[in-house]
Design a protein around this nucleic acid. Structure first.
Lengths: 188, 188
DNA sequence: CGGCGGGTTGACTAAATAGTCGGCAAATTT
DNA sequence: AAATTTGCCGACTATTTAGTCAACCCGCCG
């Protein structure tokens, strides 16, 4: 039941293991336990499938971060909340995270609507701008700060994924790393 | 002349534009102005070609960084030299950098020899360990520091690539960013 | 009951693809 | 000059692939 979901799950697993073009649609259908035609019923082309999978993951991740990162009283606490939430999501969804990474670093990311991306980023940028106005963080271009934060998140995630740590230690490391990041951008 | 080189150049260009499996060997041969069979004369399989291209780029990059980042008197200056060199290389070789990124984030990176990688990283790790011993930088795991630095480099590069800055401004930004990074890891 | 329609099937096809192979032409060696 | 090697060619093939389609199943409504 819910074959669309099964297809997406199978596609995720295989794309991460074999790459986009390395995975034939027939194998995806097989892995999903679904006929070949059914796949094309839900996703008219392979590109549609890849893009559909990306948006599905993106939506689920954004939902998680929004739920778990409620705005706190201070600017720093709000930022930390978001930082922690996205990192924990990535750790709990390694395959999804790996897919996202692969997608962003492939020519497929060109299929994305640039306007759409900016719209999604706007709240975050607004928050950073406010932090600058209030002289809490350094007056750097917001997209620059954003790039630094996200690559930082990505790096830490890679480190945590390639080493196996206890949950406690992991939490400690994430928290400490946020402090490093904060030192980097806070106004002195 | 030097068909091998022509093949590598064509492969680089097409892989970045179309993805690994999105690029047929026939198109690579055509773009290189070389017969189909010639490609397979130099690279018995497509995987060999991808791996060959990766090592070729890696070698050229390492050579550049080693030349341009001579050990300076202070620890910080040495580190800054390396940081600048790799960033300038990336900016001067955008396509190569993009390929490297795509390669690392694809299942192909599994073809790499893990031992080999560690051997290449050793000098860098040794340097960081010395910095810790001498109480110049914070006593964090060296592979952790390394991950933070490289993701940082990657992020900055992405930022510089997606915005067009003047050379002067670019240099300024790179230098400033190193200071941010340095503040993050230096012992207080 | 009979017919309607969305979801599902899997055999099928037209096109594309990685890799082969027999041979050629220009160096290099004898 | 003959023989051998080497790099190179491009037509060819066996296989794979994305996508099609006619038929089918089954719940639902008139």
């Amino acid at each position: 039941m819910d074959k669309r979901k099964k297809i997406l799950e199978a596609a995720l697993k295989l794309f991460v293991a074999l790459g986009f073009h390395g995975t034939p649609t027939s194998k995806i259908a097989q892995e999903a336990g679904v006929a070949n035609g059914t796949l094309f019923h839900y996703f008219p082309t392979k590109d549609d499938l890849i893009l559909g999978l990306y948006t599905d993951i993106k939506i689920r991740m954004t939902a998680f971060v929004n739920e778990n990162a409620k705005p706190e009283d201070t600017f720093k606490a709000t930022m930390k909340g978001q930082y922690l939430a996205s990192l924990y999501w990535a750790l709990d969804h390694k395959t999804e995270f790996s897919f996202k990474q692969q997608f962003h670093n492939s020519p497929f990311h060109l299929l994305l609507n640039q306007e759409e991306i900016e719209k999604q980023l706007k709240p975050h940028f607004d928050m950073l701008r406010k932090g600058i106005e209030d002289k809490i963080i350094k007056p750097l271009p917001v997209d620059y700060i954003h790039t630094l934060i996200s690559s930082h998140t990505f790096g830490l995630n890679q480190y945590l994924t390639s080493n196996e740590f206890s949950t406690v230690k992991q939490h400690q490391l994430i928290s400490d790393t946020f402090e490093l990041l904060w030192d980097m951008i806070k106004e002195n």
